[in-house]
Design a protein around this nucleic acid. Structure first.
Lengths: 334, 334
DNA sequence: TTGAAAGCGTTACCAC
DNA sequence: GTGGTAACGCTTTCAA
């Protein structure tokens, strides 16, 4: 592989000149710059990223930590992130946390080898906060997604889940339902709690008593939704707000297996608006999260922090906090 | 950040000793090794990967190039790859090719900065073969997935798509169907052609005439399947073999909108067996691809080549070629 | 078993 | 504008 020294030798200049020429820096005569670029092209030169990042202490890489890259839920977020990455020239390094303790390991590996310049951490089940202190302490830029974090220094973006739960439930109430159940998500996640809270508020506002019995525990997974719906069926509710679409798919199936019809016998409202939700039978009424925009925003925040640091400007000590709004998507399940 | 020198200073030894100790190499007294490891731990030491790969010329990273990381189709493959990566200590660097020409760019960037030690390239729409010559020429290990490539040096793994198409169609024939349509994939892909070929063979074997009219052009996407099914509906077929599940979802919808029932009016068989296919209405009968195993195998092949090279053994000049078998999954759509 | 020193490819600094 | 050179943190060789 051709190195900067090879080019320097051929061009009859010093390696430092080649470096400057190729990096579009000041202090190189235009004619020599052209000559160097030409030679570099002929040699098929590409900078060795290890060498570069060893001296610059930057990797031009951003680490993305999420529960599971291959969950359909994340696909739009990833696309949004990639859009910004492509524009800014960053490489994205994905790592699945599977929501478990190993996350600490993963993070440590990413940040300690100086493999990444910054991190986006998606997910709200991060129980231990110690890694946040670690990142703060080490002064590594990061953005939390799907998580509202009170420390003012922390950048975070999240959806107004209380409002989303409220909107879903209120819609059912407006449709005339009074016996409305809820299939909750994994209660270790703040989003699950928030969506329940929204559900309760809508009920309260309509003067409907909240009953714990009408809330079935789920886990955000399809099969959990199926099981939860089976528990709810004997209770005779006419509508169910399900805390995410994946569980709603399971709920639809349980209802169909029971010989009941959606929405006539039971109306269903989901949450997330996955790609697939327009294809269910019947197509799912749901609360949309602007996942593409959230992914994009997370990377915009991070890259702009990185840019500030690079330019040496004093960055504001305060983190950016952005709350996104849910949107009701009416289809045919309610 | 603590470096090897810091550890050396504290331990009162030379940096080279620390390096050997931490890399479990011979030539370090056990007691000093322990002492060094202890100090490294206390300091929270992590090797700087840039420095290391600059000298070793290895990045311990494998690049994965696929059409679109966030397609549900790939989720199992990715999990299979990650399983091996975790076991062998490699980091996976994903890059979407979006099946387009930029792939050359992506690859170039990955291999030229010595960012990756090897590559897995998933997808069969790689029209230009030039990058394969490039990889071969540069002696960079790589594995092709979903693509049968004749050059004996090339490692590749693929599914027997002809057989899959044959199995799907034959199953419909055995169910008594004679008027069997086909919704094809994007014909620029070999897999689409192979599945058509299998369809034709099954028809021929049963003495059913093949008619071009019964084959509707699709694109492997849900909406394309929907459109194609609408074209097919007036032709009065009693069954359709759809070239992938994503299109089958669209087909199911078109049928349902036409007021027809699956499988009574029209039977449907898909291909791939995506996670979601057990949740459609009715659950989809389909041909399964062992995607997890294929992903796993691709990385096993690559890491074993990498291991051989590292140990300096002369690797066999012949590539590994593995053909996976499809499996019929009977549910309720046919 | 240990240490000294060279060098990986690049950038950054300072002198010219 | 340009060139020389010292880093960056690590591994590897060779000598002690």
């Amino acid at each position: 592989m051709a190195t900067i020294k090879d080019i320097a030798r051929i061009a009859g200049v010093a390696p430092s000149v080649v470096s400057r020429a190729l990096n579009n820096k000041y202090g190189v005569k235009e004619s020599t710059r052209q000559r160097i670029i030409q030679i570099a092209r002929e040699l098929g030169y590409y900078p060795n990223s290890a060498a570069r990042s060893l001296v610059t202490r930057r990797s031009e890489t951003i680490g993305i930590v999420m529960a599971d890259i291959s969950e359909p839920f994340y696909s739009q977020s990833i696309k949004g992130m990639e859009y910004v990455a492509k524009q800014t020239g960053y490489t994205l390094l994905f790592s699945n946390s599977y929501e478990n303790v190993e996350q600490g390991q993963v993070l440590h590996k990413m940040i300690s080898g100086e493999r990444v310049d910054g991190l986006v951490i998606v997910g709200s089940n991060i129980q231990e906060k110690s890694f946040i202190s670690l990142l703060l302490e080490r002064d590594i830029p990061f953005v939390l997604v799907e998580r509202k974090f009170s420390d003012p220094r922390v950048n975070c973006i999240w959806l107004d889940n209380v409002k989303g739960g409220y909107m879903a439930t209120k819609y059912l109430i407006e449709k005339g339902h009074r016996r409305i159940g809820h299939i909750a998500g994994n209660l270790y996640f703040q989003v699950a709690l928030d969506r329940i809270e929204g559900y309760k508020r809508a009920l309260a506002e309509a003067g409907i008593d909240f009953s714990q019995e009408w809330v079935a525990a789920g886990d955000f997974l399809t099969h959990g939704g199926y099981r939860a719906m089976k528990e709810l069926l004997p209770l005779g509710c006419t509508a169910v707000f399900v805390a995410n679409d994946a569980m709603a798919y399971g709920a639809l199936r349980a209802i169909s297996e029971a010989g009941l019809k959606v929405p006539d016998d039971i109306a269903i409202v989901g949450f997330d608006d996955l790609e697939f939700s327009s294809l269910t039978n019947p197509p799912l009424t749901t609360i949309r999260q602007p996942r593409y925009e959230m992914g994009r925003k997370s990377l915009e925040i991070l890259t702009s922090i990185l840019r500030e640091r690079r330019s040496g400007d004093e960055a504001s000590p305060d983190g950016v906090k952005v709350c996104f709004q849910p949107e009701l998507i009416v289809r045919q399940s309610a």
